[in-house]
Amino acid sequence: MAQDDQIKIRLLEVFDAVMQTGRVTSAASYLGISQPAVSASIQRLEAQLGFVLFEREGRVLAPTPAARHLAEAVRPVFSAMADLTEEVRRFARTGMAHLRIATTPSLGHGVALDALRDLRRGDPEMRADVTVCNDDQVLQAVELGQADIGIVLGAIEETDLHRTLLPPTHLVAVIPRDHALTKHATLGPAELAKEDLIDAGRVISPLVAGSFARQGVVYSPRFEAHQSQTACAMVRAGLGVTVVDVFAAELYASKESLIRRFYPPTKLTNTVLRPAAIPESKARVLADYTRLLHAATDHVPFLAHQHRSPIYN
C-alpha cells in the first residue's frame, strides 16, 4: 500500500465512533465534527479497503461482517493509543521520567524513603534515583544539576538554591542497653559528661556543645564519628554514648542500645534544597515530594521517652 493509501488513524477513529453509536449524527456529536465529515470519512475508508462497512437500516447503520472483523483488528490500536495518552499525561505531571534525590544517611535511609513511597502511590510507574552521601556532596549534586532535590541535616544559610525547612525534631541520647543510665527517662550533660562521649559530626556537635555550655558542663568527647549513624554503631560496639538526631537513632539503634530524650531540649531543623529555577512540569512532583517529606518528618516523635518502640524501653 502506497504511503498516500495508508489508512489514517482519524478514519479509524470515525469508524470506531460509528461502530459504537450506530448513527452518523451520534458519531458526529461524539467526535465534535459535522455529519457530512463522518459520512465522507466512512466513504473514504470503504474506498481504501475495497468493501462496504455499513448498511443503512432505517436511521441505524448496521455493520457488515467485514466491519466487525475490522473492529476486532483495530481494537489493539486504540488500546495502544490510550496507553500513549496516559503516558504523555504522566510525563506532563512529573516532567522527567524519574526523580533524582540526594540525601544524607540519617534522612536518606528513613523519612526520605517514606515520602518516596507515598509519592509512588500516586504514580505507580514513577522512577527515582536515591543517592546517599554527606552534606557537602548533597549540596554539590543539586548545584551541578545532578540531583533534582537534596535533603541535608541542619539549616543551610549561604546558598543560591531554593530552601525549605522541615519540621524541627529533638536530639536524643543513645546508650548501651546494659548501661546504668538506662534507668533515666532523660539524659543531660551532667550524666553524659561522666561517660565516654562520641561526637556525631559537625552538624550535631555545635548543638550538643551549646547545650552542655548552657548547663555549665564542658563538652569533651573521647571519640569523633563525623556521622550520626557511625556514632550509633560505635555505641552498639560498646565504645561509649552519643547524642544524635532522632532519625539516625531510630534507624541505627539496635537490641544492644536504647534511646533516651536529651535535655535541655535541643532542636534540629533540616533543609530541603532544590534549584532556584525548575521547569513548570518538574515543579509539581518536587512540591508533592517536599510536602510528603514534611509530613513524614512531622511524624517523628519529639518526646522520645514516650515512644513505645523496644528501642526506647
Rank of each mutant, 00 (worst) to 15 (best):
M1I: 13
M1A: 15
I7D: 09
K8Q: 14
K8D: 12
R10D: 15
R10Q: 14
F15V: 00
T21M: 05
T25I: 13
S26W: 04
A27V: 12
A27N: 04
I33Y: 02
P36I: 07
V38P: 08
V38L: 07
S39H: 07
I42H: 02
L45N: 07
A47M: 10
L49T: 01
F54I: 00
E57M: 03
L61W: 00
A62N: 06
A67K: 06
L70R: 03
A71R: 15
P76M: 03
M81F: 10
T85Y: 13
V88M: 14
G95V: 08
A97W: 08
A102P: 03
P105M: 01
P105D: 02
L107Y: 00
H109G: 11
L113W: 07
D114G: 01
L116S: 02
D118F: 07
R120T: 12
R121Y: 04
G122H: 10
D123A: 13
E125N: 11
R127A: 10
R127S: 08
V130Q: 01
T131M: 06
N134I: 05
N134L: 05
Q137R: 13
V138G: 04
Q140Y: 11
V142W: 04
E143S: 12
L144Q: 13
D148L: 02
I149V: 15
I151T: 10
V152M: 02
G154A: 02
A155C: 09
A155F: 09
I156P: 01
P167W: 03
R177G: 11
D178Q: 14
T182D: 06
K183W: 10
A185L: 12
T186K: 13
T186V: 14
L192I: 13
A193H: 14
K194W: 12
E195A: 10
A200K: 06
R202F: 15
L207D: 03
A209T: 14
A209R: 15
G210E: 07
S220V: 14
H226I: 12
S228R: 04
Q229C: 08
A233I: 09
G238M: 13
G238P: 14
L239I: 14
T242V: 14
V243N: 09
V244Y: 01
F247Y: 08
A248L: 04
A249Y: 00
S254D: 14
S254A: 13
K255N: 10
R261Y: 05
F262E: 09
Y263F: 12
T269E: 15
L273F: 05
L273H: 03
E280Q: 10
D288I: 05
D288A: 11
T290C: 04
H294C: 05
D298T: 06
D298P: 00
V300T: 00
V300R: 01
P301Q: 09
P301D: 03
P301R: 07
F302K: 13
L303R: 11
A304I: 06
R308V: 09
S309F: 01
P310H: 02
